[in-house]
């Protein structure tokens, strides 16, 4: 059984048997992996606090082909992200990013760009002011969507590919995967109307940029649009629970 050392980020963890944990990792070399960390819950575990959510480091994995659950031999934490638990908005947004990679990332297949985009997004989120956490989460999520190859079409009609005007609101179809020209909008009703500022924001986020001055109402509208888009294109009808919690969860207590 080959021992593989790879950069990894802990995305999900749950207890298994008396003292072990099952982790779901995003790895640079082997895509998304589910691993068993034996004894990880013991106070003097060799894994220490490395196995906390969103921690990044070098994982040593015993990978066996055809097995769903691999074995974690070690995890040298290089970068913990405790700040993501110090603000509820950051925590909810980070969980949504984790869900995005867990649900739509490839298993057993290297995707270094996706891994780097995730690491960058989590870092950005960890240092974002609480009031900017939604924007940082949206930026990270749309960049991940772009890395997965599902960025929406914003500069041309997603059905007939005709150029669309850059100013003013445009119809946006989740099913078609982007904006629609006036002609196609008549034959494909439904969807939402996106102002030019919202389209620019999504294009900026998809290219790993940042958008300043987004207010809470706009952020919520973007979160809803993103969830609907993901559910249409990636989710197989299954609920995106972390996205739902991020959007509706009432995380911002008084």
């Amino acid at each position: 059984m080959p021992l593989v050392a790879t950069d990894a980020i802990v995305l999900h963890a749950f207890d298994y048997s008396e003292s072990s944990r099952i982790l779901r990792l995003a790895t640079r070399e082997a895509g998304v992996q589910s691993v068993l960390a034996r004894g990880a819950r013991r106070a003097k575990s060799r894994f220490g606090t490395a196995l906390d959510l969103f921690a990044q480091g070098t994982a040593q994995l015993y990978l066996k082909e055809g097995r769903d659950l691999q074995t974690l031999a070690g995890f040298d934490v290089l970068h913990a992200r405790p700040a993501l638990g110090a603000d509820l908005g950051r925590f909810a947004a980070a969980s949504a990013l984790a869900e995005l990679v867990l649900r739509f990332g490839t298993v057993n297949e290297a995707h270094p760009a996706l891994f780097d985009a995730l690491a960058h997004a989590l870092d950005h989120l960890a240092t974002a002011e609480p009031a900017q956490a939604s924007e940082a989460g949206l930026a990270g999520a749309w960049h991940l969507v772009a890395q997965l190859g599902f960025a929406p079409s914003l500069g041309a009609c997603s059905i007939c590919h005709a150029d669309v005007r850059a100013d003013g609101p445009l119809p946006f179809s989740h099913v078609a995967g982007g904006v629609l020209c006036a002609g196609c909008a008549r034959t494909h009703p439904g969807g939402r109307t996106l102002p030019s500022a919202a389209r620019e924001a999504i294009a900026t986020w998809s290219g790993a940029g940042r958008v300043h001055g987004l207010d809470a109402r706009e952020a919520r509208a973007h979160q809803r649009l993103l969830r609907e888009f993901l559910q249409e294109h990636l989710a197989d009808g299954r609920l995106l629970r972390a996205f739902e919690a991020w959007e509706h969860g009432g995380w911002s207590a008084p």
Binding site: T49, L88, A253, P254
Partner: peptide, 19 residues
């Protein structure tokens, strides 16, 4: 628990009972 989820939970509870 002193995990990230435990910290977020503690923070939420603190905000609710703190006043």
């Amino acid at each position: 628990n002193p995990s990230l989820e435990g910290e977020a939970t503690a923070l939420y509870v603190q905000r609710q009972v703190g006043p």
